[in-house]
Design a protein around this nucleic acid. Structure first.
Lengths: 388, 388
DNA sequence: TTCGTTTTATGAAAATTTTTAAAAAATTGT
DNA sequence: ACAATTTTTTAAAAATTTTCATAAAACGAA
């Protein structure tokens, strides 16, 4: 595929169906050239005629947009005990989303093969032939090098990168990503056409991660390990983070911090419906706490507020550093809406420079749980069409 | 100037003189086209024949590089009581640097006119005709919007942006920048060809600022206010920052923090050669402290170490977030080399994720005091040639 | 309805760019 | 020193792209 063809496809992704005149103007190519390339792309099956459209006077142009059936992309969001699958068409629209497919991860070839079979079965089960799958995007937690295709946290294999293993088994182009970055891209691409060029996505789950869209592009850093905001040393506590260091933002703003805080209060004698679970099982899971928030448990709500206030301090700092147009909060802890958002906003208003923070909108993720899987689909498309 | 012409000039800036074959390969244009454009650029005076050069076998190619005399760029680094001027040729090489030109800033037209006259006099005094100046770059401390050309900290004029005022008076293209970003660009462009695509520049002066090169481009953020690391809320003190907030990194890692720390120790009874100045004048200036460091004053060195340790904590966090290839420390506080650098390195090693920080080199600024003015020259060139 | 205006679409001429082939210039090996 | 090899340079042919002129389609006003 040539650069001009990619330019036209990119424009269709950004703006939807366009007229020949639009292509010509936006890509600085002449009308006859644009016409030629568009008709070639239609012949190849990538584009389709989207009919004439009204304007403010003058001949009505034919518009051309992506052919949704040009192919499909599969996104796989791998969590600890299960994974989620999203399938998008060529236009990037979600066709199927299958949540919580149980699976036990072992670091051997059979485990991989079983997972790949489940992926392929899910896709064909949704009525999409595997031949029409143009690419598979896979996201994992922890540090991932998307270029080389290996993960540092899971599936630690010495020589052969994870990407190649999947690629061989699935027989399609595979891309590997960090989960926060996949969520970031999913959210960024799903906002419509009035996209901010600079956006931060905060992944508030068991840990605390971040993805960044800077100048309209996903930012990776030198080795693809960017976004580790969870380990920004900025807290004055003496909790040892899972990374082994002290003072990490994650020790005060994450799912692990939330459960720790709740357990601390329960030990101190604070009572709540959570006490029963704690007393009986000797432990409280993050899911227990999140359920309690949904049930308006005062202690759990207070805990979410604590997390929000601490996270807000981190976000305030990030806003000062990045001056972004948008900050999106996503991840498992997006429960109890205002209980989390208000303390975040309060901290940001209090702690970020006013001239900077007035430019920044803060909102919750719209894709919620499916953000990573959808992001994986779109990343797979982006890498196939080379539009990152 | 066409996009192809700019591409060739950009390549010459990045790699120095190139052969026709190099241009053809790097820019994806055919050899005859490259030949034509290069000869046109020579005729226009931008490029010159740089002679034949040896290779590993085969006919020796002629190389073509920037003509240093195609024009000059002037950089003006405006500080509180004085300003510095740098003049670079078209190749970006520093021709003159004039430090500490005294000037009193007042927010009226006469003050501006007097400053512009001093700038023009300095340039012509250096033997360069003002007609050959292709652009002037001006940098100021504080928040600056380079796009619209106004400053929020100085020269506050309601309606007409600072840039236009200068432009009218100097009768050339003028660009306005934030000082930290100008320093960043100067340092980035002066490192030669093996440039890291992701670099952070820390401006450790009276305040604490930062500039970022991300994916090879200067990062501005939505409104050009990015880089305010000095106001990252991460310290657990109760010092009120000049921004009005509490906990800003700048209250522990900046020139103001250093003088405050020194004065605190002197008040507590610690004695050092600085005591004499403090006792006689009732105050200590930052310059006093920096001089004391140069003179190996133990108290001042200890103070620099405190600043370094705190700054290192901030840099560790930034490394986790950006995963940069290079962090450059610049600004007025770059004195006493190791006294500052060692605590920074210690903190970074201790507090940043090992897999991330091994990718990051940390070093001092090479341009030192002239970084901003040189950056201004190069930014002026970059904006004229549209290569940002 | 008709005419003028605006915008899109089409096709031939003109301009530009790439491809191809061959010549020129330098290095390496024998 | 000379042939073989490698790489740059030049020149003509082929392909592509743009420009320009014109036709077609739609809207709005008279």
């Amino acid at each position: 595929m040539t650069e001009e063809q990619r330019g036209i496809i990119r424009l269709c992704i950004r703006k939807g169906a366009c007229s020949i005149a639009d292509f010509s103007k936006e890509l600085n190519i002449s009308v006859p050239t644009a016409t030629k390339i568009v008709f070639q792309l239609i012949e190849d099956g990538y584009l389709q005629d989207c009919g004439k459209v009204g304007t403010s006077g003058g001949r009505r142009p034919s518009t051309y947009g992506l052919n949704p059936e040009a192919g499909y992309f599969v996104g796989v969001d791998i969590a600890r005990q299960h994974f989620h699958i999203a399938i998008s068409d060529f236009k990037g629209e979600l066709k199927f989303y299958i949540q919580d497919i149980a699976f036990v991860l072992e670091a051997n070839a059979d485990s991989f093969r079983s997972m790949c079979r489940k992926i392929m079965d899910s896709v064909t089960g949704s009525g999409i032939s595997w031949d029409k799958v143009l690419g598979v995007g896979i996201s994992l937690t922890g540090r991932v090098n998307p270029e080389k295709g290996f993960s540092l946290s899971y599936f630690v294999s010495d020589d052969i990168p994870l990407k190649d293993i999947f690629q061989r088994e699935l027989d399609t182009a595979v891309t590997i990503e960090n989960d926060s970055r996949a969520m970031t891209y999913g959210e960024y691409m799903s906002q419509g056409s009035d996209t901010d060029q600079d956006m931060l996505f905060i992944n508030l789950s068991w840990g605390l991660g971040m993805g960044m869209i800077l100048d309209g592009h996903l930012y990776y850093g030198k080795s693809g390990f960017s976004g580790e905001i969870g380990h920004f040393p900025m807290l004055d506590n003496d909790i040892i983070c899972r990374c082994g260091k002290i003072g990490c933002l994650e020790t005060g703003a994450s799912g692990s911090a939330l459960t720790r805080w709740i357990k601390g209060r329960l030990k101190e004698g604070r009572r709540s419906p959570l006490w029963k679970i704690y007393d009986e099982t000797g432990d409280i899971s993050l899911q227990n706490v999140l359920d309690a928030v949904e049930n308006e448990d005062v202690l759990a709500i207070e805990g979410i507020g604590e997390i929000g206030a601490t996270l807000g301090r981190g976000i305030a700092g990030l806003i000062n550093v990045f001056n972004p147009g948008l900050v999106v909060i996503g991840g498992r802890l997006i429960v109890g809406r205002d209980y989390l958002m208000l303390p975040i906003r309060t901290a940001v208003n209090k702690l970020s420079l006013s001239k900077v923070s007035t430019d920044t909108k803060i909102r919750f993720s719209r894709l919620g749980r499916s953000a990573a899987a959808i992001g994986d689909c779109l990343l797979s498309r982006a890498k196939l069409l080379d539009l990152l």
